[in-house]
């Protein structure tokens, strides 16, 4: 990087060799590439190379016998892994496996979660940013707790809270119900295990088991504080004069929120929301530890299935193929959200 130091703003006014002129005209580009070199090197070695290796693995029957470094190479079997996954032949080895139902649930899971996280995150960040609010620091310290706690702790604790007999949720509902004279037996809800969809009389036609709703509640609890952190950082970089000027011009707080706050925190929130979509789509810990994908694989998502293929079934080649499919599904998802939000555009003041 040091070689780009002195030719940044030299004007080509004096007599120069073509090489010097070339140096001056490319100073900006060379600086740009110089700053990219470390990331390029690191990611090439530990990210892109393993990914290419994974693509090769997906065309093989890589199994437990091929794991050791002196073991024989696996056989190339072409597209068989992919065909088995898409046509459902894999269901012979993995019960209740259906690729298309899995994909549909995974998308529904993602898009029923993230909008709630972003909206709550922004609103709570704005609440915490109100000037003169008492105990701000206390609230900030409390609200961070869901991200501070390891997700595996959260998942196991919430799983316990949704326990049928002694979970905090059922106990709390029973004690509230008692006040209104409802028998406690009504609240012995089998959150994780019941197969039939809840409230069938209220929501006819919906097919999701109760465990989906339990995990939705848990994930809302878990998801909004990250959005609040990002929104708070962005809110604090908004100059206060903007609001003063708007207030003098007679803008109501609601108008200020939609015309100043939202547009100015958008450059920070858009990458965060995209990150949230991808994180939720791949939310391994919560699903794996709370419902385990059950009942009947109805709440299984793609990454928990991939993990099951590696860890439970030990079909490494099949898992690699599955991960390549995950990659393309996520690529499509990202390109769609990217086009929708134009997130790669630079923000210019």
């Amino acid at each position: 990087m040091a070689n780009t130091a002195n030719d940044w703003q030299e004007a080509p006014s004096e007599a120069q060799t073509p090489f010097q002129r070339w140096l001056a005209s490319t100073a900006s580009a060379r600086a740009a590439y110089g700053y990219l070199v470390p990331a390029f090197f690191v990611m090439g070695l530990i990210t892109f190379y393993p990914l290419l290796f994974q693509v090769w693995m997906s065309f093989t029957d890589y199994g437990i016998a091929n794991l050791r470094f002196d073991a024989p190479a696996p056989n190339l079997i072409g597209l068989k892994n992919y065909i088995d996954i898409f046509t459902g032949v894999l269901a012979q080895k993995v019960q209740n496996f259906s690729f298309w139902r899995l994909l549909a649930f995974n998308l529904f899971w993602t898009f029923s979660n993230v909008p709630i996280h972003v909206a709550l995150g922004i609103l709570i960040a704005v609440l915490l940013n109100v000037k003169g609010l008492w105990f701000k620091k206390v609230y900030r310290a409390i609200y961070i707790l869901p991200i501070v706690l390891p997700t595996l702790v959260i998942a196991t604790v919430w799983r316990n809270m949704f326990d049928q007999d002694s979970g905090a949720i059922n106990l709390a509902m029973a004690s509230i119900g008692q006040v209104f004279g409802v028998a406690p037996e009504v609240f012995r809800i089998r959150w994780m295990e019941s197969i039939e969809p809840p409230l069938a009389w209220l929501l006819p036609g919906q097919a999701l088991p109760l465990s989906y709703y339990a995990m939705l509640i848990t994930n809302i609890w878990l998801g909004w504080p990250f959005m609040t952190i990002v929104a708070t950082g962005a809110l604090q970089s908004i100059p206060g004069d903007l609001y003063e000027a708007a207030a003098i011009d007679g803008a109501s707080p609601t108008q200020q929120f939609f015309n100043i706050t939202l547009p100015l925190i958008r450059p920070a929130m858009v990458p965060a929301a995209m990150y949230g979509i991808i994180m939720t789509f791949n939310l391994f810990n919560l699903i794996y530890m709370m419902s385990g994908g059950g009942p009947l694989r109805k709440t299984q998502i793609m990454v928990t299935t991939a993990y099951d293929l590696v860890n439970g079934q030990r079909l490494y080649g099949m898992a690699a193929a599955f991960c390549v499919i995950i990659f393309f599904v996520l690529l499509g998802l990202t390109l769609l959200t990217n086009r929708f939000t134009k997130a790669t555009e630079r923000y210019d003041v």
Binding site: L51, Q54, Y62, I278, V303, F327
Partner: peptide, 24 residues
């Protein structure tokens, strides 16, 4: 930038197998 976000999409579960084999 697209290649960075492309990798960003990938969950860690999806790279366990190749990283395990290669680092081994």
């Amino acid at each position: 930038m697209v290649s960075v976000i492309t990798v960003l999409m990938l969950p860690s579960v999806a790279t366990v197998a190749p990283l395990f084999v290669l680092l081994n």
